[in-house]
Design a protein around this nucleic acid. Structure first.
Lengths: 127, 127
DNA sequence: GTTTTTGCAAACTTTTTGCATGCGG
DNA sequence: CCGCATGCAAAAAGTTTGCAAAAAC
C-alpha cells in the first residue's frame, strides 16, 4: 500500500501505471486519469508518486527535457531504456551491467553506487 | 567564434569554461564570472551557451537535479562522467562504447543515435 | 548607421509547500 | 473523532522571451 489510507487518487495512479507500464510524466498521469472521467489533482499525483519513490515502489528517469518520468517497479528488474528521438517511444532494455561497473571501478578511484544508461535512436516505426 | 560579434560576455564565458574544464551550471558560470569583478547577465549566459550548443562548441548533461550543466567540447573526445554523490565532484571517464552500442543495436530494432552513460558514487576524498 | 547583443522584467514549466477542508478507518 | 490526504493557491527554481537600449563593426 502507498500510505496509510486507501483513496481513489492512489488507486487510479497505480492502476494507470500498471496499465501503461513505461516511464510517464506527472502530466501524463494527470491527463490520462482525467480522460477516464475520474477527477484527480496534480499535487496529489506528485505527493503520491514521491511517497512511492521513497518506498521503492516507483523509480524515475530524467532525460534531456528535464522532466521526471515515473515507472512502477513492480516485477521489474533493474533495467534501462531505449528512447525514440522522433515519437518518444520508450522501451526497456537489459544489459550486463556488473561488467560495466567493474570496469569503471577499476579505472577510477570512485566507489560506484549507481549509474544511468539510456539509449536514443529511431524505433522501428520511425526509421 | 560564437556569434557575429566579439563581446566581453562571450570572451568571459569561454575563458571560464576553458579554465574550469568540467560541466557547470549557468549559475556557476554567472557567479564565477561575477567574482572576478566582470559584470555579466544570466540571460546572456543562457543565450550564448545555447548558441554554442547549436554550433557544437558546447554540450550539456542533465542529472537527477534536473539542472543543465555545460561543458566546452574543445579538444574533448566523446566521453562520460563519474559523479560523487557527496561532494558533487565530476570527473571524466572514457569507455569503449562502440561495443555497448553494437550490443544494443543487435538486441533491439532501434537505429541507435546516441546514449547517456553516467556513473555515481563516492570519490576518493569522500569515501 | 545598421545589425547584433545585451539587460531587465516578465512569462513559463515543472515541482513543492502551506493551509484549510475533507475523508478513511 | 482523529489524523492522514486532498485541493487550491502561491512559491520556487531554472530557463526562455519580448522589447528597448547599448555596443560592435
Amino acid at each position: 500500500m502507498i500510505g496509510q489510507r486507501n483513496t481513489k487518487a492512489r488507486e487510479n495512479i497505480i492502476k494507470y501505471l500498471k496499465k501503461i507500464n513505461r516511464p510517464v510524466t506527472a502530466h501524463e498521469i494527470y491527463s490520462s486519469i482525467g480522460k477516464t472521467g475520474e477527477k484527480i489533482n496534480l499535487t496529489s499525483i506528485y505527493r503520491n508518486i514521491n511517497l512511492m519513490k521513497k518506498k521503492n515502489l516507483v523509480h524515475s528517469i530524467i532525460l534531456n527535457d528535464k522532466v521526471e518520468r515515473f515507472e512502477l517497479l513492480e516485477n521489474k528488474p533493474h533495467h534501462h531504456h531505449i528512447i525514440c528521438n522522433q515519437c518518444g517511444r520508450i522501451d526497456d532494455i537489459e544489459m550486463k551491467e556488473n561488467e560495466i561497473e567493474t570496469k569503471v571501478k577499476n579505472k577510477t578511484c570512485f566507489k560506484i553506487k549507481s549509474h544511468i544508461l539510456e539509449f536514443f535512436g529511431l524505433c522501428p516505426n520511425c526509421q
